[in-house]
């Protein structure tokens, strides 16, 4: 077979499907341990229909729904019931454990009598992802093999001395110049600073991303660093105020650190909070300047 054809089309084609086969497993394998840590599963959602909608559900099909007085419900079920009644979407998650009988009845759908009125209440389970431990390494291997296959054309072009881009030319148009020194300069800076201010609120990763966003469109590396410093100061200020208002804002960080790096051990909660609050001061300007420098050719 013509080797040019092989490395330009056949190998990356197979690589693309190997890569695609690895994506699902890699996502599930990575998500599985994180999902529980962040509380993204396990709690069923309770939906409550008011007296107007309930009869449409409960009167059809000749099925006798279990009936409870509100007082008979467990504490988590009561709490979810009340929150769902208050919610504009008629739904709230059940925080806590339901007894097996209560869970069974609510899974089927039940009539709850609350202050003399009949409501229809039902829960929808949301189990956690549970995958075999081998899935993640196998999928990562597929991603690696597939990625190498997809990059084969670049290596081949380099080897035979062809331009890396099919239509390569010396006449390079700078995509980011439109924002850096072109007609969208101001819009780019203000827009990116605004976006970075929201994204940067996510602990630790946020300031890095936010700094990158600002740095990508900054006219020079020096300005990127200055803007990154402004951003870092703003984020630290917001996070400091937030910590005063919400002392428990970052309690989810220590267990996350334990999950991602079990050998490190559980970090001190107060130390983590201080780190999260102060980190933007350093991360945002460094990230902004580094991004500007690394993307100077774009």
């Amino acid at each position: 077979m013509d080797r040019n054809y092989l490395f330009t089309y056949i190998v990356p084609l197979i690589g693309a499907f190997v890569l695609a086969a690895g994506i699902g497993g890699a996502v599930l394998g990575t998500y599985s341990p994180v999902q529980n840590t962040f509380g993204l599963c396990g709690s069923p959602d309770m939906t409550v229909f008011g007296p107007e909608e309930s009869p449409q559900t409960t009167s059809s099909g000749g099925f006798e729904f279990p009936q409870f007085a509100y007082e008979e419900l467990s504490d988590p079920a009561r709490s979810a019931f009340e929150e769902a009644l208050r919610s504009p979407t008629d739904r709230h998650s059940v925080e806590g454990t339901l007894s097996p009988d209560e869970r069974e009845a609510l899974l089927t759908g039940s009539v709850v009598i609350y202050e003399g009125t009949e409501y229809y209440a039902a829960i929808t389970p949301h189990p956690c992802v549970n995958v075999t431990p081998l899935l993640l390494p196998a999928s990562l291997l597929a991603l690696l093999v597939g990625g190498v296959g997809m990059l084969a054309p670049i290596a081949w072009r380099r080897r035979v001395g062809r331009p890396l881009h099919g239509g390569d030319t010396g006449n390079v148009r700078s995509g980011l110049a439109l924002f850096r020194e072109g007609p969208y300069e101001g819009v780019g800076l203000i827009g990116s600073f605004g976006a970075a201010s929201v994204v940067g609120l996510v602990p630790l990763i946020g300031p890095l991303l936010g700094g990158s966003i600002v740095g990508a469109v900054a006219p020079t590396t020096r300005r990127a660093a200055v803007l990154g410093t402004y951003l870092g100061a703003l984020l630290t200020g917001i996070l400091a105020v937030a910590t005063v208002l919400l002392p428990s804002a970052f309690v989810f960080v220590p267990p996350l650190v334990v999950t991602l790096a079990p050998l490190v051990g559980p970090p001190n909660a107060q130390g983590v909070t201080i780190l999260v609050v102060l980190a933007p001061l350093l991360l945002a300007p460094v990230s902004a300047a580094a991004t500007r420098r690394l993307t100077r050719s774009l």
Partner: peptide
Amino acid sequence: ASIGAYAMGIATLMWLFNMLQSYRVGAV
């Protein structure tokens, strides 16, 4: 079916990359 869909997603990203990168460096 999901693997096929991811392959389509990869192809879409390839298309997007080609559109953007060629705008920068494509032959005039």
